[in-house]
Structures are given as C-alpha cells and as structure tokens.
Amino acid sequence: MTGSLTKWTGGVLLTILLILTLVPFVLLIFFSFKTQLEVLIDFWGMPDKLHFENYSAAWKAVRSSIGNSLYVCVITVAGAVLIGSLSGYVFARHKFPLKSPLYMLLIGVMMIPSLLTVVPLYAIITNLHMTHSFWGLILPYISGTQLLGIMLCRTLFESLPEELFEAARIDGGSEFYLYSRIALPLCVPILVTIGIVTFLAVYSDYLWPFIVLDQSQQTFTMAAVGLNKSGRSDIGLSFAAYIIGSVPTVLVILFGMKYYIEGMVSGAVKS
C-alpha cells in the first residue's frame, strides 16, 4: 500500500522533472513555426499556420556556416582517426627504446587544460598565418583529439593475437601493410566511436572558431550566436536555424548512440 503510494508520488515528481527538462526543447520547435508578429501579439497562441518560410529563410542564413563546420569536422575526424590509430598501433605491437616515456609524454597532454594554451596557441596560429583559415582550427583540433584514438586503439590492438601479424610478416608484408590491412579493418567499431566523439566535440565548439575565424567564414556555432545577438528581431527564424544546425549532431548521435556513450564514459575528449 505505502509502496504503491511512493511509486505514484515518484511518478508524478518524475513527470514534472521531465516536463521541465523538455521545456526548452518544446519552445524551440514551437517558436520555430511562429512569425515575429505572432510572437509579439500573442506569445502563447498557436501559430495561424506552420510557418515553414522560417525554415527556408533560416536555411539561407546558416547553410554556408553549416558547410564550414562540416568541412572542419570531416578533416579533423579523418586526421585524428588516422594519426591516432597509427600511433596506437605502434605502441601496441612494437618494442622500441623509450617506449613508455614517449607514451607518458603523449598521455601527459591530458593534463594540459585548453585554458592554459588558448592565448599562446592564438599567437602560434597568428605567426603561422592561419588565422582566417580553417587550418587554424583543424591542426590544433587534431592534436588534442588524436589522444582518444591512441588510447582506445592501443588497448584494442594489444588484444589481437600475434599469429595474425606473424603470418603476414612471413609473407613479406611491410609494417604499414600490417597496420592498414590487418589492424585497421579489425577495429572499425572503435574508429567509429572515436569519429563520433571527435565530430561532436568539434561541431559544438564555439570559442576557438570565434577567436580564429573571420565572420565571413563562420562556423555554425558562430552563426547561431550571431543570430541571437542581432536577431532579437526574429525568434522564429533563429529557432528554425538552431534546429537546422542541430540536424548533423542529432543524426550522428542517433547513428552512434551506443558507440557515443561508450566513448564518453571511457574518457573525456580533449579539444
């Protein structure tokens, strides 16, 4: 009796918490279909019809920025996955002098907060003439995000049986062949995890693009913040733009939900 009462109270409380959690989410969708006039005149009212023109206007406003973000993401993911897995392979399957100090040197990077490096990194990027260039984002991103790849790939490659590699070596396979044709294909799920975590970290970053890039080559997060600053004039358009810009992250997360949670729990990504 008391048990079912507790359950009932818990259920009500939980439902309230869930509704509160979802309020911003619902607002986002609701207002993305209202015109500015409807917002001003009747804040709570339903839109007279679904104003999809908000979406076409928003698409025009943010499509190039989404393109820029995707460009940066794809190159960073490719770089981080390739370089990370290559080093992961070496640390897993090779014996060489200074192996463990070198590994510590790599892993030690995780002790460096971006807070400490943001100012000098800006100086380096400036001196390399990479401000106003996507490479000013991509190269620093790869440096930090490769870490997750190195750690996860090392663990996985270490678990592979030596016979696999021995056989290929006897057949005259080069080290690069062993890495690219034997090790890599066996760890596709891990590579996908690394790719997803990297993609989400890079796509959501606001600070570094804001510091490095020009307004004319802005990423989606820059465009989104810009809309809210200048765009108090049109909530419907801004909200539609946020929804459009969130599509890539939603797709990536839905595609890799399982991988993503695994990767997040196993180690915070650096960017």
Binding site: I83, G84, L86, S87, Y89, V90, L102, L105, L106, V109, I112, L116, T117, P120, L121, I124, L139, P140, I142, S143, G144, Q146, I150, E175, Y179
Partner: peptide
C-alpha cells in the same frame, strides 16, 4: 617514423604553447 605525426602535432600545438 610512425610516431612522428602524433608528436609533431602535440609538440607544436600543445607542449610549445605551454
């Protein structure tokens, strides 16, 4: 040789800034 890319990146964009 295989480790050069990783170390080039962390040296230039992480340890040098520190």
């Amino acid at each position: 040789l295989f480790l050069i890319p990783s170390f080039l990146f962390i040296a230039t964009f992480l340890y040098y800034p520190v």
